[in-house]
Nucleic acid binder design. Structure first.
Lengths: 233, 233
DNA sequence: GTCTGAATTTAGGCATGTCTAAAAACAATT
DNA sequence: AATTGTTTTTAGACATGCCTAAATTCAGAC
């Protein structure tokens, strides 16, 4: 076997530690929002650690050619790093679907558990889980689940706040998936698939008077409406 | 809060590392077979590590009062250590049921994946998984799954080798759950619940001529018969 | 009871992933 | 272009969990 082939083998066989995986995921997520190379500080903030620790890890990930890193210039994922991060997101979201659809967890309870489950590495496990869940394209928060090749499904979705009085929307997901927001939605009986009809918008504060699933009347703030994603009917 | 209560709290809240959990499980399993205090070397063999590493860990587990340990005298699990180990076995076996019954993995594929899954700590996850699987009492190898209180279900099971010609047995599990044995059984179409009828026993080598599920005829060695557990019909 | 070989522990090291404190580099303003 | 404040990196430490090699303890044969 030539030296080149050995190099290839190394990449294929490489398995990452939980910490390394979490860094890749963090870089992916930050890069997704801010459209530029990712700063050391941003990663430290995201992972609740120090800039010094981040620098250490960046050196390591760079050696493994998972990121492109130049001192003081921020990082971006390499092709293989991107693949790894996408795969992690796939695993995370599939487990979330499992926890909600099969184990009947509530929206807001699943993130931390999925965070653990995603680090279990087995191609076959994920393939079988995917099949068991019937190849879901979106997770319980409405975020797209990349397929085995890393392709995300895209769909039209609009913040509820964009709609006018009289319009209808079907809830597809949320922009903010923090616990308290998800709990608030659950309390309001708003869930994935709920039909929202805008009855009236108060111009003063842009709060909306809505009907949920043709049953419940409610008033929601502009902030809530901005974080609810719907398909316009 | 008194000092005593704080002590109690510490025990309740304590979470263990993967390594610590694996040691507890190893001690439990070795103690189950050999009916005496567990030796350092036995643990090292079981975990594929060195005696020196084991000693280090025993000191640590002893400080946490999960084991009873005196230098040079072997170890045994304390009450709380036993509880932890039992709970781990519960998690492991529940995940194995999930992998086989829901994800349709084969018998021999599930051990390593369950080995990872068992370390995810969430009371609620396991409670919900248990319910989702319909509170199974035995895992895919026929080993009993302790309930949330740590109680194992006991049932009558006999090695197939104990039966006489003409007797019938229902396969309940295996004594040896190593890959190649499980694969062999799969190839022979022997699975949990299979009905085995003993047609004839060759005295010379105690091999058995059997009928499997009233369909397949086969000859199995004494060694195989000793590792197949059945309920006599 | 002493000896000898096996079992166990101690001592010292190493990799990983974290930290704090200090130094270096950068960028933005004057 | 110098200064200042922020960002990033380096240096040095620490905990965990593992290792090898050496010392110690034990247990069984004599």
């Amino acid at each position: 076997m030539s030296k080149n082939n050995l190099h290839l083998l190394k990449i294929i066989v490489m398995t990452l530690s939980k910490a390394e995986e979490n860094y890749l995921k963090a870089i992916f997520k930050i890069a997704e929002k801010e459209n530029k190379s990712v700063s050391t500080n941003a990663i430290a903030r995201h992972l609740n650690t120090t800039a010094a620790s981040v620098t250490d890890m960046l050196r390591k990930l760079s050696e493994k050619e998972l990121i492109t890193y130049e001192k003081y210039k921020g990082v971006s994922l390499s092709t293989s790093g991107n693949k790894m991060a996408t795969n992690l997101i796939r695993r995370h979201r599939l487990w979330e679907v499992f926890l909600v659809n099969k184990l009947r967890f509530a929206w807001h309870q699943v993130h931390d558990i999925a965070e653990e489950l995603e680090h279990i590495y087995s191609e076959e496990l994920i393939a079988r889980l995917d099949a068991f869940l019937d190849y879901p394209k979106f997770d319980p928060h409405g975020d797209p689940i990349p397929n085995a090749e890393g392709k995300f499904t895209i769909r039209n979705q609009t913040a509820l706040a964009e709609l006018f009085a009289g319009q209808n929307g079907i809830v597809l997901g949320v922009k903010d998936s923090r616990d308290d927001f998800l709990k608030y939605l659950t309390d309001m009986h708003i869930k994935l698939g709920s039909a929202i009809k805008i009855q009236k918008i108060t111009h003063f504060d842009k709060s909306m008077h809505i009907t949920i699933d043709e049953r419940t009347e409610a008033v929601i703030s502009h902030q809530v409406a901005m974080n609810l994603l719907v398909r316009i009917q």
